[in-house]
């Protein structure tokens, strides 16, 4: 069953099209990543899916409700957390949880159970009276997520939830996201960090208001990059780079630290050409091997080839 079904969603601000005819589906319990640069249309899409921005055309069913016609029902069935971990810094932990629990109209029995859960995941049991502003960033962020899903929504939207958090806290946060997904909550997450994209079951990449790639990590790496990457370990690297360039090997040659990447079309095997070109020269060649492209490679390639056309 699909949690979200987006059909030809479009948002125009005056003459500017922020989101252009976007369609996709998100399965229940999935961790769904939204990637793209600032201004790609991620936030506008999320705002429409949360029912706080009316689409110019098209529609989306979120938890079975139309964002166009039933935004209030949509709001009841989703949680939302922004990059600012929006809690009231001058209220205590307990008061923050109570406020949001109250806003979602939780029954007292359910509320107590959820409050306990939220305190648990943030590691704040027994610290209910702490002023929220005094908490460290990582804990505040987990508390923010706890309050964002205090009403046990079917779907939760996380808008760049990990920006400005240290790597350890980020990892713990992703564990929490996984836990939510296991409880059958659909998680929509936008991020800048491509290594985080690897944790997602499914991804879309947006650029200029359009989806330019979609699929899981494996599909993205294999379907969208029609090239092979060779990693060359050698000494001295600078001389090698010059020789390879003189010989016009591959489509693109770049230096990565003390290694060199050669990107060549999939159909030609250039390993031998590389070895031949270097053997005649005074170069110590340690290894030449095909490597897996990273999401970085894929996205840079996709964005660049899109700009060229």
């Amino acid at each position: 069953m699909d949690s979200i079904e987006v059909n030809n969603l479009t948002k125009k601000f005056g003459g500017f099209t922020a989101v252009n005819n976007v369609s996709f589906k998100v399965k229940r319990g999935e961790i769904f990543g939204f990637l793209g640069a600032n201004g790609a249309g991620k936030t506008t899409t999320i705002k429409m899916l949360c029912g706080i921005l009316t689409p110019s055309s098209g529609d989306a069913l979120v938890a079975g409700f139309s964002v166009k016609d039933q935004p209030d029902m949509v709001k009841r069935n989703i949680g939302y957390m922004s990059q600012k971990f929006s809690l009231y810094n001058d209220l205590t932990v307990s008061e923050n949880i109570e406020f949001f629990g109250g806003v979602y109209g939780l029954e007292s029995k359910l509320f107590l159970e959820r409050k306990k859960w939220a305190l648990e995941i943030a590691g704040l049991r027994g610290k209910e009276k702490t002023i929220t502003g005094d908490l460290p960033g990582g804990i505040k962020q987990r508390l923010a997520l706890g309050t964002a899903v205090i009403h046990k929504p079917q779907i939760v939207f996380l808008d760049e939830p990990t920006s400005g958090v240290d790597p350890i806290a980020r990892r713990q946060f992703w564990e929490l996201i996984n836990q939510l997904a296991q409880e059958d909550i659909t998680v929509i997450v936008t991020t800048h960090y491509l290594e985080e994209a690897e944790y997602c079951n499914s991804l879309i990449l947006m650029d200029s208001g359009e989806i330019i790639a979609r699929g899981n990590v494996f599909e993205l790496k294999n379907n969208y990059l029609n090239k092979t990457i060779y990693e060359i370990e050698c000494e001295p690297t600078l001389l090698t780079l010059e020789i390879l360039e003189e010989n016009n090997i591959g489509d693109e040659i770049t230096m990565y630290g003390n290694t060199i990447h050669v990107i060549a079309p999939k159909k030609d095997d250039v390993e031998l050409t590389i070895r031949n070109a270097l053997s005649s020269q005074n170069i110590l060649l340690k290894s030449v091997k095909k490597i897996q492209p990273t999401l970085d490679d894929v996205f840079v390639h996709l964005l660049e080839s899109k700009n060229e056309t």
Partner: peptide, 13 residues
Amino acid sequence: EIGTFDQLIVTPI
């Protein structure tokens, strides 16, 4: 300023 406003408008308030 602190971002809670966005949080409030996605609630049923």
